[in-house]
Computed example of a mutant assay.
Amino acid sequence: MPEHTEPTRRRLRKLNLIMLVPPLAVGGAAVVVADSRTWWDAVILASGVIAALVAFERWTARDLPRFAPVCLIITAAVWPLGVLMIDSARASYGLALVGSLVVPYLKRYRAAAAVGLVGYVAAVGATRLLVSSEGVSDVLLQYVVLPAGAVAVITGLMFPNKRFYDVVEELQESRRREAELAVIRERVRFASDLHDIQGHTLHVVKLKIALARKLVRSDADRVDNELREIYALVSDTINQTKELAYAQRRLNLSAELENAKNLFEAAGIRVRIRREAEVDPRAGELLGQVLRETTTNILRHAQASQVEITVSRSGITVVNDGAPLTPLPELRGLATLRERVAGNAGELTVEQTDGRFLTAATFPHPGPGAGTETRAETP
């Protein structure tokens, strides 16, 4: 079961339990009270109602298959007892509920199972003719047509309900894949930048080494100059690679805002960006790094549906919903950034409350060091 679908499933389960269990329980209690003449009648009818409620509760928990056989046997037994012994035309209440839950979730032969369920209810109801002195039309209406019709309608309604839950899961799976794709795109961008830095350098180094080999015996001074240039070029490439690895290579907050917007939209997340003022240039690069790290964390750890980014002259605030109710694992990237932000007279705030996650970085008095090399370690 993908972890990204769990929050949605929990919300749907809670909604079903709150909205449907009370009326189902009241309806079952009404059947027991109205049709029971003895304690034995009440026990039989109540067992069918309880089995139905158990089946429904397990259905909301996606665990019905384990309990379906027992619940079906109990409710299927209550119906003939109700027809032949208790004179209860409503004894099919539990079977109607359990059967309608089970049939649509069968992997095969669902139509045949639905027909068989309705046929069983009708056939058992017809046996009332063997013990009743009532008119045939009255018996058929009360014990055959109405119970079988109710089962058929309820079961039929559960098929689109099943499709609804399938669509919800498909949407959740699609969203998860979009988030993974967004992270992959970020990795591809990193790989492209790395190729730009090192590909050109290695090609130039190769040409200079080839030239130095030709001149090693005829022009020592030229060879020495070429080696100096190679050394300087490699040193510069090492520095650029470090800057890229630390996510500080030509980091621009405006570009990071656009990149974050594209990543969130690709993952199906609504994003709102408010720019209250232009960012102080001395803090812009470090704030851009905070935004990049926060974007990665939201895509990897949250089940967000919306993100709000607020930019002021010396700070940035990112708020997203969909945060898990349990504490997140240590976000090492943000921990590293907190130290760097504090080292530049700033403050990095991280808060997780009521399913919302806030990340805020502020520089009341941006220092000259803001935006220098900062390590970004993805958690």
Results as ranks from 00 to 15, higher is better:
Val32Lys: 00
Lys206Gln: 13
Thr295Met: 09
Leu117Ile: 06
Ala77Phe: 09
Ala76Pro: 14
Ile269Pro: 04
Tyr246Ala: 15
Ile44Trp: 02
Thr372Phe: 09
Val32Tyr: 00
Val216Trp: 11
Leu129Met: 03
Ala30His: 09
Asp221His: 15
Arg275Trp: 06
Leu227Ile: 13
Leu146Gly: 02
Val98Ile: 11
Glu265Arg: 14
Val216Glu: 14
Thr353Gly: 07
Leu146His: 00
Ala42Val: 03
Leu171Phe: 10
Leu286Gly: 11
Arg292Asp: 14
Ala113Trp: 03
Thr127Asp: 01
Ala96Lys: 02
Ser312Thr: 13
Arg313Glu: 14
Pro329Thr: 04
Arg66Thr: 07
Val103Glu: 02
Asp280Phe: 08
Thr317Glu: 09
Arg313Val: 11
Asp63Ile: 10
Arg375His: 12
Ser235Asp: 09
Ala112Phe: 07
Ala77Trp: 05
Thr374Tyr: 07
Glu186Gly: 13
Lys107Leu: 10
Pro281Val: 10
Lys107Gly: 05
Pro368Cys: 03
Gln172Ala: 08
Thr349Tyr: 04
Val319Ile: 10
Phe264Met: 10
Ser314Leu: 10
Ala77His: 07
Thr60Lys: 01
Ser314His: 11
Val54Lys: 01
Ala210Cys: 08
Gln198Met: 14
His365Gln: 14
Ala123Lys: 01
Phe363Met: 04
Val43Glu: 07
Thr75Tyr: 13
Leu233His: 04
Leu15Tyr: 09
Val102Thr: 06
Leu171Asp: 14
Leu202Trp: 12
Glu339Cys: 02
Gly48Glu: 00
Thr353Gln: 09
Glu57Phe: 06
Ala126Asn: 00
Arg249His: 10
His4Asn: 09
Val168Trp: 01
Ala260Lys: 00
Thr317Tyr: 04
Leu325Val: 00
Ser192Asp: 15
Val33Tyr: 13
Ala370Asn: 10
Gln303Thr: 12
Val49Glu: 01
Leu171Glu: 15
Phe264Gly: 02
Glu57His: 11
Val26His: 02
Gly28Cys: 07
Val49Asn: 06
Ala34Gln: 08
Lys107Ser: 10
Leu202Ala: 14
Val188Leu: 13
Thr8Cys: 00
Val216Asp: 11
Gln289Lys: 12
Val279Ala: 15
Glu226Leu: 15
Glu57Met: 12
Phe159Glu: 01
Ile309Gln: 00
Pro23Ile: 08
Val98Asp: 01
Tyr120Glu: 01
Glu57Gln: 11
Arg189Pro: 09
Tyr93Thr: 08
Val168Lys: 05
Gly371Leu: 08
Glu180Leu: 15
Leu215Asn: 11
Leu358Cys: 02
Thr127Asn: 01
Ala323Arg: 02
Tyr120Ser: 03
Val279Arg: 03
Gly199Ala: 13
Asn225Ser: 14
Gly82Lys: 10
Gly27Gln: 02
